[in-house]
Simulated assay, not measured.
Amino acid sequence: MNVSGKGTTSSVSHFILMGFPSSPERQLLYFGLFSVTYILTLMGNAAIACAVLWDRRLHTPMYIFLGNFSLLEICYVTTSVPNMLANFLSTTKSISFVSCFAQFYFFFSFGCDEGFYLCIMAFDRYLAICRPLHYPRIMTKQLYTGLVIFGWSCGFILFLSPVVLISQLPYCGPNIINHFMCDPVPLMMLSCSEDKTTQSIYSTFNTVFMIGTFLFVICSYALVILSVLRMPSAASKRKAFSTCASHLAVVILFFGSVMVMYVSPGSGHPVEVQKIVTLFYSVITPLCNPLIYSLRNKEMKAALRKVFGTEITVHKA
């Protein structure tokens, strides 16, 4: 199979994902560990999405955004983890050229959408806390429906160009990727020719997206915190800080690890560090997010108890 790119014929028809080289016994251990992590991630995020769907008390913009964010997490983690689990049991660890770039596209598109959703959620909290009297008039059903659609679609539109550019690079071999997924940095390193233009466009895209969304979120929450500090009621302060703390924890987990890897691609991160950081934001963060949001939110905990049928109702005789 030949794949054409930029006028050059690429002889590579598939790639080998090395993953985490180790003994067969350790590969089985990894398989068991990450299988449990994946199942818990699916269960945790699905529980939040179901709670938002079934509990009418959570049919507010904040929880609608949170429910969609949880669905995004499920899609995000599913683009990479099942293939990683299959490779733990495989001897070939092969992935086709098309499948590799499809994984690349969907993984980073969903990741990009998560960044936009964190911005949307920060904007919603800013309006609710800093502009409470204007909130119902501004955050209408039409607006939050539009924001939900924007959050799901924007990443797929924006990430199409970087994926097409990198897929069009000539790949003549070798085809071994020292990673557990089709990451753009090792893919560009495997190209037969060093395309500075593609690397520059990709790096600029990541920098603008990461810095832009991160600054938007931080500025939004800075204004929220200033507004909370001016609240006269201690109870109102505690409630607002509790909500913001959970959002900020997710923001730090997401942006902190992603910026290390993708704001400056090719900056000389050791291969093992790349794998660990990628593992953190692609596997660990989606597992932690449901815990962060549910443990610090009374309404969500009550809804989850209702969903799982554990809510106790006291009947008076």
Rank of each mutant, 00 (worst) to 15 (best):
L187S: 10
S35K: 11
T60S: 15
E272V: 10
G67H: 03
T207A: 15
P270N: 12
S153P: 01
V163T: 13
I225H: 12
R305E: 14
A245C: 14
R238L: 05
Q27I: 14
F255N: 03
C172S: 10
I252M: 07
M189K: 09
S10C: 06
M62G: 02
I312Y: 06
P286R: 13
R238V: 02
M189V: 05
L66I: 10
M139P: 00
L89W: 03
H269N: 14
E73K: 01
S294P: 08
A122K: 03
H269D: 07
L42E: 03
V12M: 04
A51K: 06
M121S: 13
M189W: 05
L295S: 11
V228W: 10
K93Y: 00
T9S: 04
G146W: 08
Y202L: 12
L28W: 08
N83Y: 07
A122R: 01
C50Y: 05
T78F: 06
V164Y: 07
S23A: 14
F280V: 04
F123N: 00
V3E: 15
T310D: 11
L71C: 15
N297K: 06
S153N: 04
V258D: 00
P290I: 02
H14V: 02
L248D: 00
V283F: 08
A102V: 08
L17C: 07
L89P: 00
T197L: 15
T78Y: 02
F123M: 05
N87W: 10
I176A: 07
V251R: 00
I149F: 12
F69W: 13
G309N: 12
H14L: 00
N2M: 05
H134T: 14
S227T: 07
Y117K: 11
G67A: 07
Y76M: 10
V250R: 02
M188F: 07
S35I: 15
I64W: 01
C192R: 15
S153G: 09
R131A: 13
L66W: 01
L85Y: 12
I166G: 01
I64V: 11
R305A: 15
G19L: 05
F205D: 09
V263S: 10
S23T: 13
S23D: 15
A86R: 11
G155Q: 08
L127V: 03
V98H: 07
T91C: 06
F116Y: 14
T285R: 08
S96L: 06
L187P: 02
F209A: 09
F280N: 07
L215E: 12
G19K: 03
W54H: 07
S242F: 01
Q199A: 13
G111K: 14
N87I: 13
R56V: 01
S236L: 04
L169D: 05
F110G: 02
T285G: 02
A234T: 14
S11E: 08
M261V: 13
K239E: 08
L190T: 11
L40M: 13
M231P: 09
D55S: 07
M261E: 09
E299S: 14
I74G: 04
S267K: 06
M210T: 08
T145Y: 03
W54R: 15
P186S: 15
I16Y: 09
V224F: 06
E114G: 11
R238D: 08
L158S: 09
S236N: 12
N68P: 00
L40F: 09
K306G: 02
E73V: 00
A249M: 13
V36S: 10
M43L: 12
L279C: 11
L58S: 05
C244G: 11
Y76A: 13
S242L: 05
Y293I: 01
F156R: 10
I138P: 00
C244H: 03
K316W: 15
